[in-house]
């Protein structure tokens, strides 16, 4: 099967400093790809290139090609790219002045959904999808920021899911959460990967192993190795990967 996203020769810079070097990765549809590597190695930068958020950073630059279903993302309008490639950030960031309901409805409203019943359905579906419905059913009017940290993160996932993206990017979605909330998000991801192309950055190797089908190991802005998760963890091709997955540095 052709990959959902094909990344080739991807280079990215921050104000003159290069953060990614010739990255080439295929990201499969209906599968979760974990991106691992020590901090500062360019995982977030890579993810932010995939929905073109990287261009929003002052002084940032990018080169290379990213193809989704065979067509170049750089050719598409940036807004449409971001509709198709959703993003969940490390720190939960619900809109503080919007209610739970409106947080999830935001993307739908941008797409032009106006009818009350459609909005209701879209929001409810997304919340159910994100496994948050039961918990917030009674607080749809409360501000998004009044939820607990784990709930806020799942709210952000629901917000991204509401517009039914084709790819969902998650940048260390659990690093700000406690173990119970983490478990909930993990089981959610396990469910979502059957329907989406998931790309999950994580510094938690056990988590990468639990939730992903494929894993890409980044080091100093380069992809050292990418392959099936079990393979990469048990029989890494590269010495560097072996050292990293066995916790010998990091």
């Amino acid at each position: 099967m052709a990959p959902k996203l094909e990344v080739r020769d991807l280079n990215a810079w921050y104000a003159g400093r290069q953060a990614l070097y010739d990255v080439a990765v295929d990201l499969e549809d209906r599968a979760a790809t974990a991106v691992i590597g020590p901090s500062g190695c360019g995982k977030s930068t890579f993810l932010r290139c995939l929905n073109r958020l990287h261009e929003e950073v002052p002084g940032a630059r990018v080169s290379g090609s990213i193809r989704m279903d065979g067509s170049d993302l750089a050719r598409e309008h940036v807004v449409s790219v971001r509709c198709r490639v959703g993003m969940v950030f490390q720190k939960p960031n619900p809109f503080p002045n919007l209610s739970v309901f409106e947080n999830v409805a935001a993307g739908l409203r941008l797409l032009g959904v106006r009818r009350r019943d459609e909005l209701d359905q879209g929001v409810a579906d997304a919340l159910v999808h994100a496994g948050l419905w039961e918990e917030v059913e009674q607080q749809l009017d409360a501000p998004g920021t009044s939820l607990s940290g784990g709930q806020q993160q799942r709210l952000c996932i629901a917000r991204a899911l509401a517009v039914r993206p084709e790819v969902l990017l998650l940048d260390e979605p659990c690093s700000a959460l406690d173990p119970i909330a983490t478990a909930k998000v993990e089981s959610l991801l396990a469910r979502l990967k059957r329907e989406y192309c998931l790309v999950v950055v994580t510094h938690n190797l056990a988590q990468a192993r639990r939730i992903s089908d494929r894993t890409a190991f980044f080091y100093l802005g380069k992809v050292v190795e990418v392959g099936a998760t079990e393979e990469l963890f048990t029989r890494p091709a590269e010495k560097l990967t072996e050292n990293y997955v066995n916790g010998r540095f990091g």
């Binding site: 002045n97 919007l98 209610s99 309901f101 409106e102 009350r116 019943d117 209701d120 359905q121 929001v123 409810a124 579906d125 159910v128 999808h129 419905w133 059913e137 009674q138 749809l140 009017d141 409360a142 501000p143 009044s146 039914r164 329907e195």
Partner: peptide, 23 residues
């Protein structure tokens, strides 16, 4: 807990049939 929009407590239409993930 400032209300952004009144009348959204619970869903107005009650047409949700959660569960099916289909669009």
């Amino acid at each position: 807990g400032h209300r952004w929009r009144r009348g959204t407590s619970g869903l107005a239409t009650g047409t949700t049939a959660p569960g099916s993930g289909a669009p």
